[in-house]
Design a binder for these strands. Structure first.
Lengths: 153, 153
DNA sequence: TCACATTTAATTGTTCGCAATTGAATGTGC
DNA sequence: GCACATTCAATTGCGAACAATTAAATGTGA
């Protein structure tokens, strides 16, 4: 029973796992974003929801979920907190009473201007050229989409 | 007040965010791992802890935390669940009573053999060559380390 | 030795993330 | 028109993730 490192163990070594690279990079991003988003009064997932809404407003919860790969169990309480912060308004659609439409308030719209400072701070923190980041982003998105394709069988 | 898309909004567009690429890829990995890890009775963070312990046993909580970038607030309850599942044993160090040492049980050691099937399933799901994955992993790790460097100032 | 800072894990409280379920609204086939 | 399935958000329960605090053990300087 060898307890020393062996070649057969390489696939199980933490530092060989791309999933851990991604997992730990996501947490690192979170920690860099935290102080920036604190000034906006947002958490990171809330910031993502605001990014979606700043692109297009008055959308059902489901659309936000599809965009962010999140379900109602995550979004419902998060959106209620954004509503409590007076950033969004939740109203049931009159055409389809099952849907809840999410609209930005004036404050929600206004926050977009303050948010413009965030991406440039992140770019600086990543200490990387824009083109390198774009390349990496595209590769990671491609990998994500392949993984998501497997889930749907 | 233009509500249509403008070039000034590009930095705030969701699809331009590398952080979202990483964030959503991490969740995609999680969803692919889930059915595989269910068979081992582990969650993904628990699997990471087991990877660390399969490399080296009988280590303080702090060491696991440094390896995974997690703190005691996350690890203490997680390790208690692994102990409840009879995979690890938590014992206070006799040299330094502040430390809690984590050791694998026989079951914990044995689980490593069942876990060997996991990485190859992930490789298949990623639909990618090993060399491509290694390159991406190294780039992501380098980015993560630059981000972490900024946090420590 | 003794006050004091540091280290370490545990605890508490808040927010995600998801599976599973519920319940209401809508659509479909007959 | 009516049973039936589907869609959508909300809810519940559990497991992370982390900030902030607590408490005990250890190290350090005077």
């Amino acid at each position: 029973m060898p307890r020393k490192s062996s070649a057969a163990d390489a696939p199980l070594r933490l530092d060989n796992q791309i999933c851990f690279a991604v997992y730990s990079a996501a947490h690192a991003f979170n920690r860099v974003y935290k102080p920036l988003l604190d000034r906006l009064g947002l958490t990171y997932p809330q910031y993502l929801v605001m990014l979606v809404l700043w692109e297009r407003d008055d959308v059902p919860v489901k659309d936000i979920g599809e965009r962010l790969f999140l379900d109602s169990g995550t979004l419902t309480p998060l959106l209620k907190r954004l509503e409590a912060a007076h950033l969004v308004k939740r109203t049931r659609s009159s055409e389809d009473e099952r849907q809840v439409l999410i609209a930005l308030t004036a404050q929600g719209h206004a926050l977009k201007e303050k948010a413009r400072a965030v991406p440039q701070s992140i770019l600086a923190a990543s200490d990387c050229s824009v083109s390198e980041l774009v390349t990496m982003k595209d590769e990671i998105v491609a990998l994500r989409d392949r993984l998501n394709a497997v889930i749907g069988e």
